[in-house]
Design a protein around this nucleic acid. Sequence first.
DNA 1: TCCGTTACGTA
DNA 2: CGTACGTAACGGAC
Length: 670
Amino acid sequence: MKILRADVKGPVTIYVVETPEDLPGFRQFVLDNPFMGFDTETTGLDWWNAGDGFHCRLAQFGNHDTAWVLPVELGEPFVSATKWALVTAERLAAQNRGFDFHTVEEDLGVDPFPLVQKTWDTKILAHLVDGRAVKEGGIGLKLEELVPHYICADMGARVKKSMTEIAQDMNRQKKAVGFKARNRSGETREFRYDSPEWPELTKELLKAVGFTHIREFAEPIYGKVTKDNVWKKVPLFHEGYLLYAGMDPIFAFRLTNTLFPLIPRRSLHYGLIGWEHRLNWITYQLERTGYLVDEKYTRDRIEELKEEEARLLEVIQGYGVETPGSNDQLIEAFQGFGIKLKDKTKPTDRHPEGQYKMDEAVLSAIEHPLAQAVLDYKSASKKRSNWFEKALNYRDKNGRVHVSINSLHAVTSRMSITGAIPAQTLPAGTGYVRHCFLAEVGHVTATVDFSSMELMFLAADSGDRRMLKAYNEGEDLHNITAAGAFGPMGWDPNDKEAKHPKRKAGKGTNYTVCFGGGWNAVSTQWGIEEADAKRAVNGFWETFPATKEHSKKYTEEARQNGFIYTATGRRILTDEKRPYAGMNYRIQGTCRDITARALIELDKAGFTPYMRLPVHDEIVFSFPRERAEEMAAEAARIMAYSYKGLTIPADYEIGEQSWGSCLDKEGSKH
DNA sequence: TCCGTTACGTA
DNA sequence: CGTACGTAACGGAC
């Protein structure tokens, strides 16, 4: 047994199990500590490739000052000891527990369900205390951010750096692999010790057969070690690695004890701790289920796009621009053609004058074939690399991709989805990309979404009578806002199908005001004339006076307290420079919880195996073809939510096998 | 290799 | 006084 010592506000001991004889000590530790921090170290992040390139290397358990590290990679009896400890523990804590559970489920065959019922996730606890990222003025949610703030100031930086340092250290370790020597014609050749051609390679031998300038050369023992592959390559008993590994369960243990008392009483009262952990278990299952990829469709699109890119690149390079992604080169080229550029980006430290913009708006305004070619090229290459190639390259051996769902992530508590399907960035309104993703064989895709959830919540939460009347009577809110600002202008309020001439300004205003914006935002982002935008925003507040009071209330709360509460008892800390975001935080945070509630209720009703992805206000399902109608209707019924007497409805759409088919349908609302 | 910047996709 | 995200490419700093 190896024993490592460190100091983290007091002495810390890490016991490293090396042989089966060391296990009784570990077992005693588990029996003595009903509550432990837990963590694993693995070969990478691709847990879905378990048994096929991915495996668990270490499992670690710890309390306040003691950790035990088990070399799971060596197999039995260390795997059994790990499983026994997981079953025996009464309580566990882990940072981002989902990853460790995927690891032990897929690689060690552990049933995760008993584990989730007794494991606190320190990332969830930390978010309930302060959900802001570091750059938003918060503490952050990563271990390397939580540790220096809550535990020990200099520890986080050391932990973050340690694996990078280990990688650098491994790169410095070299071993002699052979000789380089020159022959009579002056050419240099390599002779390697491991070559079967030279079984007894020595300097003397090479000299004897006529080589000169003979010198031994060395290569890195581990090949090229980077921060991505260091996890796989680091020797299992590397001391720095063991120290890094051993600290994590100690951190998880201490963080749990530190964070609990900091969670707002209101959040405790609303039961958010249990609720978030339950939601996290559902998203865990969605991650594991994965999404079936249509390989042929995806490959065909990639080929098409590659051809298009090659064609466009020729055009672009014909105008002297080598790299279409380089704004510098484009600016130079356009200026060379005598085109005057005006729009600049905001000044920054590095570019105090700002830089010329080269975005879609600027490029599409330039009348030159280069501009169009660049736009088309960028669009094609983004589609290919960001969406289609990801879908193809992330597939597991069953042709499925697995995303990572952060069930509690954004400052407003919204979920985020990363990895194989950047679900929040897939093009809307067309099935072009979403056709890659298939319901099961014999199933069809169904999407169920909340329509205008945020505006409806604003209506209910503020109690604005005009807005509530609009929803209760099925009026079009965008028309109402337009009419409130500009008068009827020939619009007939009794005709449900009629569109107000300024409906676009009304729609822009509704959304923008809900997000905390003013006339300027309405004007620039919705392409509405300044005068109309000003009039529309004023009209909004006059038409819906209670929303004005509502906005004031939350801006004031944010200003005075530095936070607001959602209707679900969640505390959202606000930026002191932007108290006006208070109402939007209230809306966005509560609406996220309405979607979260939908997931939990769907889970209770047995829908989890049919769920594929949650995307903000939409949930995607794979339903058996014959039962799709009935199941989608039931899901929509479950998802609908009443708040202060107003029901926020959910609508469903049923397609064919691919997700995209829901959008390409005739008469689709998308 | 890291990180700030720019750009672009979504609710 | 627009909010919240994820991802990629570029290019200077380290």
